[in-house]
Amino acid sequence: MTDPSEVRWLRPSPLLLRVRRIEVTCATVPLAIAGALVGRLASAATGIGIAVAVVLAGVLAERFLARRVAAWGYAERRDDLMVRRGVLIRRLSVIPYGRMQFIDVTAGPLERSLGLATLRMHTAAAASDARIPGLESAAAAELRDQLAALGETQAAGL
């Protein structure tokens, strides 16, 4: 019997938080400027108020995303991979290596510029959701090959 609470969790790279921060900034700053410009039509105070509110919302989102990034974790066990995530709704998935159908490694432009990648595992079930964001590219490639090899040795028919 294995107890999921006694698992050594591996975490995504701390750079993932930077990716999320850049994303939030990219969303907040233009929105704040646009809000200020629109609000200025009414009065200068309204414009400043809207801008401050948007920036505050951005800061809150940043705090929330920091917690979310901290909540991501994955663990390679002997026969399966465990992925956990989520702050408000906490999720934990267990995917046996033998059930993996294929593995995707993707990287958006921002992730790529920081040398990160997202790994995603697919099984025959559409609901299985196992995504590990913010892995360093080399680590992601290594993990992919390792998982593929494990999947091969433990593969089971449908």
């Binding site: 999921p4 408000l88 709704i89 906490r90 999720r91 934990l92 998935s93 267990v94 995917i95 046996p96 059930r99 099984t123 025959a124 079930a125 559409a126 609901a127 299985s128 959701d129 196992a130 449908l158």
Partner: peptide, 30 residues
């Protein structure tokens, strides 16, 4: 069984409850 998922929403956490899904091959087969 293709994968096992454990999910705990905010209300469930307050009541110390959790849901476990067992996924089989296909869309929404669990």
């Amino acid at each position: 069984v293709q994968s096992i998922r454990w999910v705990e929403g905010p209300l469930q956490r307050r009541l110390s409850l959790a849901t476990v899904h067992l996924d089989a091959a296909g869309k929404r087969v669990s």
